[in-house]
Amino acid sequence: MIDWGRTCLITVTMLGGLLTLASLLIWVERRLLGIWQERCGPNRVGPGGILQPLADMIKMFTKEDWIPPFADKVVFVLTPAIVVVTTLMTFAVVPIAPGFIVADVNVGILFFLAMSSLAAYSVIVGGWASNSKFAFLGSLRATAQLISYEVFMGLSLMGTVALAGSFSLTDIVEAQRGLWFIVPQFLGFIIFFIAGLAETHRAPFDVPEAEAELVAGYHAEYSGMKFGMFFVGEYLSITLLSAMIVILFFGGWHGPVLPPVLWFLLKTSVFIALIILIRGTWPRLRFDQFLSFSWKVLIPLALINLVVTGGIVLARNG
């Protein structure tokens, strides 16, 4: 039986927590980058600048929300919501602590993969509906990128599934009670991390928005809160990616002394910071270089990883 009261409570907690976190990440990223880049970053609004997202939000809401006359209006308006909605829905299957999950479905990984594929539509359709050349090139690049990382993203997770013997995220975390999957699935982790960075359009795979050449790429024509939604979506995706890495490879909520929820949040924050650090460090790949890298290197590696893991699992069980 579903305990409706409990589910609602968890849903509201997660929704509130996530949206707060996503807006807070705007400040965290700018501040961390600032510190790493020998400057201050936003430090004026509130203590240490922590209220900066609030100021940003007020700015976004009061700005002119311009819809280009040449755009496909309905699609143009709907698009920013896609990325936020799909990412938030994925969090329904994310187990934060034992029992702290909205919907403990037995195909959690598949749900995650399906939703992340849907999220990619926001980039493709957003650029297309803008009907501007820079945005159009951005979505072309996003499409090209999509058909490469989606393939090995799924493949890279199959080793984990084989080891845990389940598609359920809770089961996968439970299976890591003794040994985190980062040890047997190191290759899988690397490949998944790369795919995740490409999925979230973060450096060094931020080619669809490539600031240097495409100005802002797929969201070049967006303004006001619609632009803000893309941002919130991006930070939600980063949080989701970090959470998934922790669940799939770093033992989820497992850890000594501290309560499980804290462990989960701690590990997730480390990966969020790592993703920000990567953005501050690395240049951007050219999109055709990323394509050939994924088809020629990552997909074969993911397949080898899957075959070897499968063999070991078979040998151990048989």
Binding site: T281, W282, P283
Partner: peptide, 15 residues
């Protein structure tokens, strides 16, 4: 460095 997508170097160098 910024033209090829690296975010940070330009800040160090301007400093």
């Amino acid at each position: 460095a910024q033209d090829v997508g690296a975010l940070s170097p330009v800040f160090y160098m301007f400093t």
